[in-house]
Design a protein around this nucleic acid. Structure first.
Lengths: 336, 336
DNA sequence: CTGTTAGCGCTTTCAG
DNA sequence: CTGAAAGCGCTAACAG
């Protein structure tokens, strides 16, 4: 591996001068600068950023931690984050926690030992608290993405989960539905709680009683098991519509319904939070509250970098991104 | 930031002993080991992997370079790569070239300066040659993913593009189609060439003349512009079916067709290479040659790591992954 | 404008 | 079983 000393020797200058040329820092005569540059090219020199990081105490690496690399919401977000990191001159270390606290913990340890300059952190849930504390302890700047974690003071980019949920449910109410099931996420996750709250709010505003029998708390990745579905549909007054707290839960329930011969929206209407990316282009089917996933990534990354570079810390800032109600064909008017 | 010297001081040993405890190397008495461990915990010590990398000349970082982070083929692949890297104890630096040689070059420079231990490289095309040469020059092990680059000798994981294409076209031929258009990828990309070859092969085997007027070379990301489509459909004998060289080209053409009031498969059949992930679950519509994307990531990563750890270089090895023909409803029998 | 010295945090010798 | 010295590749601080 060739080092600045190698080019220093060949170019007949000191290593320091080479360093100056590389970083465009300090004054170097045009003549030596040119000579050094040429030798660097000839020897195919590439700076060693580990050595650089070690002395500068700055790695120029940022980490993006997401909970489900399969979900178009997060991949779109990742794209926004990646584009922005690249644009602003940072490298990106990717982590995928699979909604699993143990995996998340592993990544936090990796992140710590890598001495990344900052973390874009989509937490698995409230249990991420201790992981975020670790980051705080080590003074690693981070921005929370998509989900809030009680007890953590930090910059964050979050969606209007409650309002979005309310609008989705109100849409169903307007279509005449009164028995609306909520397939919610884990109560451990802030967005799931908010969407639950939005659901209740919509019912209340429209004088529809809240019925526990219509509410299930699931996992954003796995969805629903068959017997729970049996139970839900086997009630005296079964639901005529379903609000799924995210896209994957919706996909799961639609499949399960089909598997037992029920059609959407003919037999049940289904709406959900988060769009499906290009899948919705191919087949505009699901009625959704679409979040600006790409913007989550861009804004989060910009905020993180400004936090790092400008020590921009006049109190943590929260950016709230609205969602858009997109009515498609998975929801329909309830026949009397 | 706390270092081994800090814990050495508190534990009243030398830094070297601390290092030995961290790495479980050399002999250290149980008593000191325990004491050191305890101090590490108390002080929340986390090793600095930059310092470590610098002396060890090994970073434990691998890079995954893909060409389109939006495409489910690559995100699924990324998931396989990420899972495997984590399982085998490596960190993953992600890069997305957007099928753009300039961006790819930037990432290669980043990779070089990061001194990653290896690269999983899905090249943008034949023009990636010089980038791969750079890696060779710096003795960075890499595995080629999905696409081949003429002139580069390396391990690679590629799909059976030609056979997959042939089967898709034969499927259309069996349905009675004779005027089959190819919306191919750039001739700069090995998979596009192979799929083109498979298309010709299928026609030839079935005594159908190859007609240049039915063949377009596009970009895997962007697809087709409207005037080209006009031209294609405005021919004397327009196509009755379309073979799209990848999923995104297929999505684009289906949208364009819809935009001018044509229905798939009623007016034209459409088939393509690569599946659409969960989109196909929601709506099993497109007839495709599905590639085992996750396996691409897993096998590529395993191969790369074995290359690094076992210097497993009795000649580069090529792993060829088959694709599966999945017939769905976007292709149908041609009415006489 | 250019060079020397010291040190970032760690591990590899080599001694004890 | 434990420690001292040297160096990985680079840059900040200070001289000249």
């Amino acid at each position: 591996m060739i080092t600045i000393y190698d080019i220093a020797r060949v170019a007949e200058v000191s290593a320091m001068t080479v360093s100056r040329v590389i970083n465009n820092t300090g004054r170097v005569s045009d003549k030596t600068r040119r000579r050094v540059r040429q030798v660097m090219e000839e020897l195919h020199y590439v700076p060693n950023s580990n050595a650089r990081s070690l002395v500068l105490q700055k790695t120029n690496i940022l980490s993006l931690l997401i909970t489900d690399i399969t979900n178009p919401f997060y991949t779109t977000l990742a794209r926004g984050a990646e584009d922005t990191a690249k644009r602003l001159g940072y490298r990106l270390l990717l982590g995928n926690s699979d909604e699993d606290y143990a995996k998340e913990k592993d990544y936090v340890d990796m992140i710590l030992s890598t001495r990344v300059d900052g973390v874009l952190f989509a937490p698995a849930g409230d249990g991420s608290f201790s992981h975020l504390q670790q980051l705080e302890q080590h003074r690693i700047p981070f921005v929370l993405l998509d989900r809030d974690v009680p007890g953590i003071q930090a910059d964050r980019i979050i969606g209007e989960s409650r309002e979005g949920a309310r609008r989705l449910v109100e849409h169903l109410l307007e279509l005449g539905h009164r028995r609306i099931a909520l397939l919610g996420g884990s109560q451990d996750v802030s967005t799931a709680r908010e969407r639950h709250a939005g659901y209740r709010e919509a019912l209340k505003l429209n004088d529809v009683a809240y019925d526990e029998a219509l509410v299930l708390h699931l996992n954003y990745r796995d969805g629903l098991n068959p017997s729970a579905l049996d139970h839900l549909l086997g009630q005296e007054k079964p639901p005529t519509a379903i609000f799924a707290a995210n896209n994957f839960i919706a996909l799961g329930i639609i499949q399960s319904l089909r598997a037992r011969g029920l059609q959407v929206p003919d037999d049940l209407s289904v709406v959900c939070f988060d769009d499906l990316g290009f899948a919705s282009v191919l087949n505009p089917f699901l009625t959704v509250a679409a979040q600006p996933a790409y913007q989550f990534g861009v804004l989060g990354m910009e905020r993180l970098i400004s936090l790092i570079e400008n020590d921009d810390s006049n109190g943590p800032r929260t950016i709230i991104l609205p969602s858009e109600l997109i009515v498609r064909s998975s929801s329909r008017k309830l026949e009397p």
